[in-house]
């Protein structure tokens, strides 16, 4: 049976506590991975591994980190993601709330976009979580 949203959050929280050495209370749905929880690029390798193990899923890197889009000259002009690029990001990352990024789509800011609830929604889309 698919896990509930609560179960998904619990497991995501455990993975983040173990991988980042943060306290459980710090892992709120609104917390951003990089800014609030202090995740660095190498931590994502660790987090992805823990999530794969916890949920028995496979996480291709490009699904969570669309570096190919953000470095594609077709989608980036003057350090900002173009409208077409935003479209591609939305297609790829339907689980993430891109509205804030859309208002000021500076590529550099993308890294701090992902929140804990984005991550949970991503996992839910993978395991078909029940509401």
């Amino acid at each position: 049976m698919a896990p509930s949203q609560e179960e998904v959050f619990e497991k995501v929280r455990t993975a983040l506590v173990d991988a980042l050495g943060v306290d459980e209370e710090e892992v709120t749905p609104e917390a951003t991975m990089v800014g609030d929880l202090g995740a660095e690029s190498i931590d994502f390798l660790d987090i992805v591994f823990r999530l794969e193990k916890a949920f028995g899923i496979e996480i291709p890197r490009a699904e969570l980190f669309p570096e190919d889009i953000l470095t594609n000259a077709e989608y980036v002009h003057d350090g900002k993601v173009t409208e077409a690029g935003i479209g591609e990001l939305k297609k790829r990352m339907a689980f993430a709330d891109l509205s804030k990024f859309e208002a000021d789509p500076v590529v550099q800011n993308f890294g701090n976009l992902l929140t804990v609830s984005d991550l949970c929604r991503y996992v839910e889309s993978k395991v078909g979580a029940a509401g």
Partner: peptide, 10 residues
């Protein structure tokens, strides 16, 4: 080895 990927390993 628990996992080896293009960007690293656990």
């Amino acid at each position: 080895v628990e996992d080896i990927r293009p960007d690293g390993a656990i």
